[in-house]
Design a protein around this nucleic acid. Structure first.
Lengths: 153, 153
DNA sequence: TTCCCTGCAAAGCTTTTGCATGCGA
DNA sequence: TCGCATGCAAAAGCTTTGCAGGGAA
């Protein structure tokens, strides 16, 4: 009993949030979900589903790709991670819980991603939505170009 | 000879631009490329590669999916059409030649797309890029939400 | 005991590619 | 004639799904 309480105590805040989300939705908590969530929140900036799978695999965690995909989907539904589309057609994920919303500069040469946030732009977007009677739920802004390092090459 | 001149004459401006692009790059013009380009510029607002293929098929034009994809890729490289990614993972295309750059409001209910343009936002983006020494080449802004019609449902 | 979750493998979907053939210039 | 373009079918990526078995509450 004590050990269970301890486990909960040392669980990372973000992982606990996910656990709460899972329980709130009358779903079950599992080892796999905990391991995946830990990996997502501890080690990553931006990552693909497959990168996450490989990382878990290299740590000796035998979790199937299917479960990784299913859990990422769940994390996304809980608004704990965000899913971003790249022009290549691939998806990348990032954890968003506790982070301010931000957008991305994406280097077309090296793939580097720079995050930024700009309040003025957010306000303009809200204004545009209002004008169209559009109920804005979210947005996604990506600026493509060449980062400073790649320009020097 | 006269008929060839006539054909050129009645070719839509956008299609001719594409033809020029193709020739400029020492590639060959073909019936398929003309038919696809016509369809792209005459009939569409936003469309997927497969929708385009089906439309051509229904018109009795027997052009393979591979050629549709290859030609859309060429149109994109010529900056005559733009390729947009949706959250679903699908791509949609739109013709951009002669159109002002614009961004999109996308309804999550019905898929409706509303275009808009905002100079102020473009300026802010340039400013952000400059700040990061990032050479901006383009951007993509999508605002997700519920359109006015779907709100009433 | 009752569902939910997982792993596996198969299927799905969109897009790309290799190769033989055909067509444009 | 010479190459590029096309069609076909297969492959390639990434993601989802059906099903049987195992685990959480």
């Amino acid at each position: 009993m004590v050990s269970i309480l301890l486990m909960v105590k040392i669980m990372k805040n973000e992982v606990r949030k996910f656990q709460e989300f899972v329980r709130r939705n009358k779903l079950l908590w599992s080892n796999e979900r905990e391991i995946i969530a830990e990996q997502v929140f501890e080690n990553h900036f931006h990552f693909t589903a497959d990168e996450l799978f490989i990382q878990l695999d290299q740590k000796g965690k035998n979790i199937s790709r299917a479960t990784v995909y299913r859990t990422l989907d769940l994390l996304e539904r809980g608004k704990l991670v965000g899913k971003i589309q790249l022009q290549s057609g691939k998806h990348i994920y990032e954890h968003i819980f506790g982070h301010q919303h931000h957008d991305h500069l994406i280097c077309q040469e090296c793939g580097k991603i720079i995050e930024f946030h700009n309040d003025k732009m957010e306000k303009i977007q809200k204004k545009i939505s209002r004008k169209e009677n559009f109920e804005m739920q979210g947005h996604c802004l990506k600026i493509y170009g060449i980062c400073s390092k790649c320009q020097k090459k």
